[in-house]
């Protein structure tokens, strides 16, 4: 066991993957000498060379498009998108090429790309630097979508993502980059599926589903709820595509109440999919309609306003109160 930051855990995972497979190459903006704007690729170019840690010209579509070409020739590119809001220029290559080439070629061409995306807010950043675009990619068949919440998962699952023959969107909660945690570097990678959620805190009354940076907030909320005698089960989704409905169903069958939280906008978001699917799958176990505690349907706001947008502990607890039918912010409002 060693203690390391979330960012160092990904760095260590990347290093392991590069040592393990000479076909793993990194490509992105400023990832070489600088080590990336978040230093996630720190020292990797020095140790593996500029031919394997490639500083790309500033063109996201080309980062993805050239990675497709490298994958055609048997490489496993790991693309870094510098910030969440910079991914849209690459959207066509991701959605129309990366996601569909295995299908289009009837399984003859594999696209084992990993697309790393620092995502989410809470760091007081400028526009386009705090977004949560995961739902676009969850909606795209052919992609796997992962979001890790802690250093151990980050270390293990970045390696699993790189080893996976499917393209993986790997969303890293950037406000957690500097948080330290225990990492077992000798952990059995096989025990980290790319499809499994994890029950972070077991509980009986409410299922609270989160991913990325909000997992820690949800855990804090569960502890606060416990003081009020409410037992909240916290689930870290980890995989956003596919969603691990086995774990979700087992929890909701037990609690009968579901709250989903994410920073991304509500409409058409992950919460909508979880709520709809769980309602379909275990309607008769539900004691209340699923509740979403999410960012609003607004462009990501300026830094001094972002605390209104980001779900925090109190908003999660308000959601818990709603799903339990306790007095809450919308009490008395019809159709809430």
């Amino acid at each position: 066991m060693s203690t390391m930051t979330f960012g160092r855990a990904i760095n260590t995972g990347l290093r392991r993957a590069m040592e393990h497979d000479s076909k793993v190459v990194l490509i992105g903006e400023d990832i070489g000498k600088l080590g990336g704007v978040f230093r996630i690729t720190d020292e990797l170019q020095k140790d593996f060379g500029a031919h394997r840690v490639i500083d790309a010209p500033l063109a996201e579509s080309a980062i993805l498009g050239t990675a497709v070409g490298m994958a055609y020739r048997g490489y496993r590119p790991v693309c870094e998108i510098q910030f969440d809001g910079f991914i849209y220029p690459a959207f066509n290559q991701i959605v129309s090429q990366v996601a569909k080439l295995h299908y289009r070629t009837q399984g003859r061409v594999k696209m084992p790309l990993t697309i790393r995306v620092p995502f989410g807010g809470g760091i007081g950043a400028a526009e386009h630097h705090s977004e949560s675009p995961e739902a676009y990619f969850m909606h795209t068949s052919g992609l796997r979508v992962i979001s890790v919440s802690n250093p151990q998962d980050a270390f293990a699952m970045i390696q699993q993502a790189i080893a996976c023959d499917d393209p993986v969107l790997f969303f890293e909660p950037k406000r957690r980059y500097h948080v330290k945690g225990e990492v077992d570097e000798e952990v059995d990678l096989g025990s980290f599926s790319l499809e499994q959620a994890r029950v972070e805190i077991a509980g009986e009354d409410v299922t609270l589903v989160a991913y990325g940076a909000l997992v820690q907030v949800a855990k804090d909320a569960a502890l606060a709820a416990r003081e009020e005698g409410i037992s909240v089960e916290v689930i870290d989704l980890r995989s956003l595509s596919p969603l691990d409905f086995a774990t979700l169903e087992a929890s909701v069958r037990k609690t009968g109440r579901l709250v989903i939280t994410h920073e991304a906008a509500m409409t058409g978001g992950l919460g909508a999919e979880v709520a709809a699917s769980i309602t379909e799958r275990c309607f008769y176990h539900l004691e209340h309609a699923p509740v979403r505690v999410t960012g609003f349907d607004i462009p990501y706001p300026p830094a001094k306003m972002e605390h209104h947008h980001l779900p925090d502990l109190d908003r999660m607890l308000d959601g818990v109160d709603r799903v339990l039918g306790r007095t809450n912010s919308l009490s008395g409002l019809e159709g809430n």
């Binding site: 498009g65 050239t66 990675a67 497709v68 490298m70 055609y72 090429q97």
Partner: peptide, 13 residues
């Protein structure tokens, strides 16, 4: 879109 794929393939070559 394929011009980027060709370029990436050439980089790998």
């Amino acid at each position: 879109a394929q011009t980027l794929h060709a370029t990436g393939y050439a980089m790998a070559t």
